[in-house]
């Protein structure tokens, strides 16, 4: 068996693959954040809480309504997206003319409230959610034992990321959205209802977080803190990729998942810090992020 830097090669391949899987979650979450920031100029600190709401929505659909995973994958994002639309209408829409900090503080406060409510209602230790039978089991890849479900997560994340990127960069709707961020008044003059479009964009960004939550529910304990562990990493991913850059956040999400995975092999204690070290270096060298326009 060959060794690479003292680590058996099969183990290293396995870790690369795992890094890719975790990167899929980072990519999905940072994508939603990038969409919201890029088009609304809001730093959505509630994104982790909305990810958690997606997982809880899946759990509720199953426990209270007997609705299984596949429908939850469709319904949970819609439900959570609607709560996002309500939040935008009630609160966030009042902040567009103010400094970024206000949006950050508002959504940060909302996140704390949402997490607190779920904690009071469901406790902190979490709820069980089963892997759907169609996706249970595992493939023996020789160098590692690969759960089918994790493979599905990567595929789903890639589809989602590519679709979102295509919609924003290549469709007429995407063109309106991008135009509205440049000059809302002018786009409105062409007869496009800009406030409604912005509201729906926030809802869509939130729905992306909720899809991530549903995908995570069978793997991790469904608990109120599940988003708060991820969100700070995801913010770092967005900053490294370049605030508001859709493609940047997708690529950076996957890449940093891999970097983190490798750190877990060579120096596990540092695995929570490595992403921030990279963030610091990137900010020094390229303040606008790897894919950002200065």
């Amino acid at each position: 068996m060959d060794d690479i830097f003292g680590i058996p090669a099969p183990l290293l391949f396995g870790q690369l693959l795992l890094g890719l899987i975790n990167g899929a979650f980072y990519a999905m979450l940072s994508l939603g954040l990038a969409v919201i920031f890029g088009l609304l100029n809001i730093v959505n600190m509630a994104h982790g809480a909305q990810f958690m709401m997606g997982a809880f929505a899946a759990w509720m659909l199953l426990a209270w309504g007997g609705i299984g995973y596949w429908w939850a994958l469709l319904l949970a994002p819609i439900i959570v997206g609607i709560t996002g639309v309500i939040l935008e209408k009630l609160f966030i829409s009042r902040l567009y003319k103010l400094d970024h900090l206000y949006g950050l503080l508002l959504t940060f406060g909302l996140a704390l409230i949402i997490e607190g409510v779920f904690r009071n209602e469901f406790g902190s230790s979490g709820l069980p959610y089963r892997i759907p039978p169609e996706l249970s089991g595992a493939w023996d890849l020789g160098f590692m034992f690969m759960p089918v479900y994790r493979g599905w997560v990567v595929v789903a994340a890639l589809i989602l990321c590519l679709t979102t990127w295509l919609v924003i960069e290549k469709t007429r709707l995407g063109a309106y959205l991008r135009a509205a961020t440049e000059n809302a008044a002018l786009v409105q003059a062409f007869g496009v209802n800009v406030p409604r479009m912005v509201t729906l964009t926030y809802g869509a960004g939130v729905a992306l977080a909720a899809v991530g939550g549903v995908l995570a529910a069978p793997i991790y304990s469904v608990n109120p803190q599940m988003g708060s562990n991820l969100i700070i990493v995801v913010f770092a991913v967005v900053v490294i990729g370049g605030m508001g850059s859709i493609l940047g956040s997708i690529l950076t999400g996957f890449a940093l998942g891999i970097v983190e995975g490798l750190t877990k092999v060579f120096w596990p204690e540092a695995s929570a810090t490595v992403i921030f070290v990279i963030m610091a270096i990137v900010l020094l060298a390229r303040p606008a992020g790897l894919f950002g326009r200065a």
Partner: peptide, 21 residues
């Protein structure tokens, strides 16, 4: 052994793979 950062770790698969290896 593998020591994971507390409380910032959600995914244990990397450590599980090391354990298996």
């Amino acid at each position: 052994n593998a020591r994971y950062p507390f409380p910032a770790t959600t995914d244990f698969s990397a450590f599980l793979l090391q354990a298996q290896a």
